[in-house]
Computed example of a mutant assay.
Amino acid sequence: MTGPVLLVLAWHAASETGVLPPEVLAGPSTVISSAAGLITTGDLQAAMITSLGRALFGLALGGTIGVTLAVLSGLSRLGEDLIDSPIQMMRTVPSVALIPLLIIWFGIGEAPKVALIALGTAFPLYLNVYAGIRNVDLSLIEAGRALGLSRAALIRHVVLPGALPNALVGLRYSLGIAWLALVFGEQINATAGIGYLMANAREFFQTDVIVVCLVVYALLGLAVDFIVRTLERIFLSWRPAFSGT
């Protein structure tokens, strides 16, 4: 916490001494005052709920697609032949570059925003789940077969649990990309959400409101990442891990 505290103190000092003009970046006291005003009117809470809903819906859609394709590709050589190469080609295309096509396909409502987030989040989950399945210890597979486990039981009790650590890592990556895609998505004719507040603030050069929105994006991302890390500790409690020295 020392680094962020020192950064805020330096920011405050630069604002108070005039080194950092308010038209370039508002000071911390102004930002806090603006945040309090937005909370009082309820605008900030409404924007947070809208943006969080978009991010989670897009993540759920993209995650479902990514995990499903990874399981099909990871468990079957035929699935790998049919799925992996197209996915590897598609993931090299920046999701942001698809915004014009998404607007043509889905219009300028909620659909292109959610689709952009889904596209961005599907690939990290696919890559990590696929790698997790293919990196399961072969000795565990052989032990399961020796115990007479069927293919379905082997997948359920050995392969998928073995891939879970990678899947959770992929989920954390996808969450980061979800917030990035959300920022871009909410620039597409948004009428609500944090991006909408930022767009309005940009028109009136309200740097304080823009900073408030950026902080909210960061805090929402941090909160969701904390939830995933908590899930890691719960579901991976069986796995010994290095915790630092």
Rank of each mutant, 00 (worst) to 15 (best):
G109S: 15
S15F: 00
V136S: 00
L52I: 09
M1W: 12
L82F: 02
G162W: 06
T92V: 08
T207N: 06
R151F: 05
L9M: 09
L138I: 11
V169L: 12
M89S: 09
R134C: 03
I188F: 15
G58K: 05
T230Y: 11
R145V: 15
L236C: 13
I117C: 07
A10F: 05
A118V: 01
G79Y: 02
L164R: 04
L149Q: 13
I87T: 03
E23H: 04
D137Y: 06
L6M: 03
L175C: 04
S34L: 10
I141Y: 03
L164Q: 06
A152V: 13
K113E: 11
S95D: 11
I177K: 02
T41A: 07
A201G: 09
V67D: 02
Y126H: 09
Q88R: 05
A10Y: 03
A190T: 14
M89K: 05
L236I: 10
L231D: 01
L119M: 10
F204I: 13
I32E: 04
A10K: 00
A152Q: 13
F242L: 08
L149A: 14
L222W: 13
D84V: 06
L214H: 04
I87M: 09
T245E: 10
I32Y: 10
T30R: 14
A70Y: 09
T68S: 11
I177L: 11
Y130M: 08
G221Q: 02
I188Q: 14
V183F: 14
L127P: 08
A14V: 07
A163D: 13
R239V: 14
P100G: 14
L220A: 14
I141L: 15
L154M: 11
G79W: 01
L56A: 02
V96Y: 11
E232A: 13
T121G: 01
I39V: 13
L220S: 13
V216Q: 07
S34A: 15
Y130A: 06
N200V: 15
G107L: 15
I49M: 12
M198L: 11
P21H: 06
